[in-house]
Design a protein around this nucleic acid. Structure first.
Lengths: 247, 247
DNA sequence: GTGGCTAATTGGTCTGACCAGTAGACCAAA
DNA sequence: TTTGGTCTACTGGTCAGACCAATTAGCCAC
């Protein structure tokens, strides 16, 4: 039953400081790279104790918005885009359930990126994309850094979509997925047909055909998801009953 | 030139505490929902001052991994995926994303939600959804709280998708869009045909037809986007040269 | 059971202090 | 002129001890 009640707002001093600092950054009064007043100055500016100031600053450093250097001062991070770069091992905290949840968010975003890329990619973009795919194909043959180049393919598509927010989301999910696979020692589900799928996407993008690009990406994701599941199952059965098997 | 030198590692006490706490969560010694020792106990366990403990705890709370309740204690968050969502939300709060940028991320998520809802919604869900649509239709006639009920329709779909992470992202984008519209004084583009569109989605969900649900949602979004653009243009032309014009 | 009281515990905040690393100015030796 | 040392003011990192406010749990009268 909706009664219109909600837990009363309880603002801590540190939260308030955080809000003000973020506001300063948003309004441009604090630019990336610029230096904040020293903790002792902030203490007087905010009329609070240094402990509160420090809790606020440390929290903002934790999410990558600020960087502190002992003896020098506290600075606004230059690449706020890198906020995602994990200082923490997020993936370790993820279970299978959560992973599936994240995948269901990531997939439509990747498809959207492919569609937008088709509508916006320049000739140079397409040329660059082709090279990335070729490098991926080479890595498949040599067996080196396959995963790195596979990621780069997806990353390139996301970049061609020309939407920084979308790119950031996709990057985050990719990083999480990578860490998860590394930590859980899950092999990758690469096979040669991926190259053809990527080439299909490339053609659609080159032709400026968003719908086809979306469809190709959707098919590719569906296939690699099936592969991943198969690999996971196989490894599971291997660990339970060590029987050799290569498909 | 590569000389093999790198900045020396400089560990702060707080960082070390953070690592240990995350490690405890990873190894399962600290389960979601469980309570941490009090700050004063941690102080003795880690052999550090309370300030350092508090900086660590506050940072982890900031990213959503811990929750603190004055007088009660500090607890591990139950929804780990919320941590990731929260982190992305931070990045959204920064930077001035263009409206179009946000929309391009939100749309595929809403479509995905509709599709998943069709695959997972229970009979009760559908019944509830029908009521929500009816309330929206009523609000359209009375002209009261239209926006609130419109939001609720989308929210209900997202909830039926059965993916908390997806739901949270959709909520986030809805909030951002609402703020954006309020700040830029952009009116809303509601019209009676939305009800029919929602009913179409409802039918697809009831039939368990994910593809149709996706298509219906896509059509609905496309239409309301066109409406929004039209409204925006009209208001812009009004403010520039007060001449009446209907598309 | 309900409601109110008390006491112990917990997080929130403040104060003041000391340490270690940094940056910049200055100066002497090569 | 350049290099390296030295001094000083400043900055973040850490600590200890204190008080407040909110929560919890147990007790007790109604």
């Amino acid at each position: 039953m909706e009664q219109g009640f909600a837990p009363v707002a309880r603002n801590t001093v540190a939260e308030e400081i955080i809000k003000q600092i973020i506001s300063q950054i948003n309004t441009g009064k604090l630019k990336p790279g610029s230096r904040l007043p020293s903790e002792r100055e902030l203490m007087e500016l905010f009329q609070v104790s240094r402990s509160s100031v420090r809790e606020a600053l440390h929290s903002l450093s934790m999410i990558g918005l600020l960087e502190t250097y002992p003896g020098a001062g506290t600075f606004v991070s230059k690449q706020i885009t890198d906020v995602i770069a994990g200082r923490l091992e997020w993936s370790l905290l993820l279970g299978n359930q959560e992973l599936m949840e994240l995948m269901e968010v990531r997939e439509p975003l990747e498809i959207q990126a492919a569609g937008l890329a088709a509508e916006r990619a320049s000739a140079e973009d397409v040329a660059g994309f082709r090279m990335v795919i070729e490098r991926y194909a080479e890595s498949l043959e040599s067996g080196e850094n396959i995963h790195h180049y596979e990621l780069q393919v997806h990353h390139t598509i996301a970049r061609m979509a020309g939407n920084p927010t979308l790119l950031r989301f996709i990057e985050t999910f990719q990083n999480l997925l990578r860490e998860y696979r590394e930590q859980h020692r899950i092999g990758f589900s690469t096979d040669a047909s991926s190259v053809q799928e990527y080439m299909d996407i490339l053609q659609a993008i080159e032709a400026g055909d968003g719908d086809t690009a979306r469809a190709c990406m959707a098919r590719h994701i569906l296939k690699s998801k099936r592969n991943a599941l198969a690999v996971q199952l196989r490894e599971k059965s291997l660990s339970e009953a060590p029987a050799e098997q290569e498909r």
